[in-house]
Design a protein around this nucleic acid. Structure first.
Lengths: 189, 189
DNA sequence: TTCAAACCAGAACGATCGTTACAGTCAAAC
DNA sequence: GTTTGACTGTAACGATCGTTCTGGTTTGAA
């Protein structure tokens, strides 16, 4: 079943951190829970990441890279300009399938839980937003021309709404509703 | 300037709680900060509310009542069926004008910060969502008829997106973008 | 065999947290 | 004048937190 080669402590830590921090909350989860979930000693955590915040920051960076690659695949598979614009919702569906227990969005929930987060963490959150806006503006170009930035704003807003819908528990099918709203917005251009 | 009559400790506590909890975060703010902001002793807090969570719950109840009354005023002022449906965005603008420092939505941020919140707190969050869906379904009736529930879902999603936009810092004018997206969704019915 | 690196378990640290206890002050009601 | 209730400031409690320290085990290369 398993490959047999031992997974390094660093990777076990990152996997455990993604699970417990983003499912159960960063502040709600003590370092000890991460350590026992990863079967790792405290010394390993602090030698690899320096602090709890350091681990959070690295876990966010990993997550952003994975999210970007999932979105990549979905975008190239799009059959039309509109599908490409809306591929962010397909990517979200694919991304969430890996971790159904996730509360909602790791980046936005971190922004809520750590309002005074250091520069390292804030930079990842900013990178997520930058990725989102840059791509959507690019994808919106053939559909809205000079008003591509406005259309991208609309899609980001619908995407935000989909994420927050998981937190609120309503609407019950966040991705379907988000995609429908984004499509309606695009139709207005 | 002031009326001269002393404000009871209970009200001072609620005012301070709304300020510090919803601006700076619940978990990030210790009880001591609330006490000194309200100029109140610890014994008063615990005799009035029993616990920090009890204070949070009551502050949320107050906030929900105020939000509902602000929305009331905006809804009756609406000049058309569409305006009435979109009045939730006017209400949000009016509500936020009172407390510009607020991070984003007190209910959704509480859901993020306190994933294991007790029944008392969870009930207020559920009541917020119930208020939102019930009203929007009612307002959507003359516009979408039998599909009023679907249109209400779309508006809730756009509303969610507007709130999360404050957290993300994008789009830069969350209310304008949310209203525009919700209007586009309504036009599809 | 020796050495260095990676990792472990476990105890302990200082700080902060929510909460309680104690003793005293003040104003209004009887 | 006394009593009552609301409130105060301060100190302390136990728990939990992030972090560090100590000492030992394993592993692979020199």
């Amino acid at each position: 079943m398993t490959t047999g080669q031992k997974v390094p402590a660093r990777e076990r830590l990152l996997a455990a951190a993604e699970e417990v921090f983003f499912d159960r909350g960063i502040r709600a989860t003590g370092v000890d829970e991460v350590l026992s979930a990863a079967n790792v000693s405290a010394a390993s955590l602090y030698s690899h990441f320096g602090s709890k915040d350091g681990l959070v920051a690295e876990a966010l960076r990993v997550r952003l890279a994975e999210w970007q690659s999932v979105w990549d695949e979905c975008a190239v598979r799009a059959a039309s300009d509109l599908d490409r614009l809306l591929s962010v919702f397909d990517a979200l569906a694919a991304f969430r399938a890996r971790q159904p227990a996730a509360r909602w969005c790791a980046f936005l929930s971190t922004a809520t839980e750590l309002p005074d987060a250091g520069d390292e963490i804030a930079a990842v959150l900013a990178a997520d937003t930058a990725l989102l806006t840059d791509r959507l503006r690019h994808f919106a170009k053939p559909l809205a021309g000079g008003r591509a930035a406005d259309l991208a704003d609309d899609v980001v807003l619908a995407y935000n709404g989909t994420l927050a819908a998981y937190l609120r528990g309503y609407p019950s099918d966040p991705i379907a509703a988000g995609r429908r709203v984004a499509a309606a917005a695009a139709a207005a251009y």
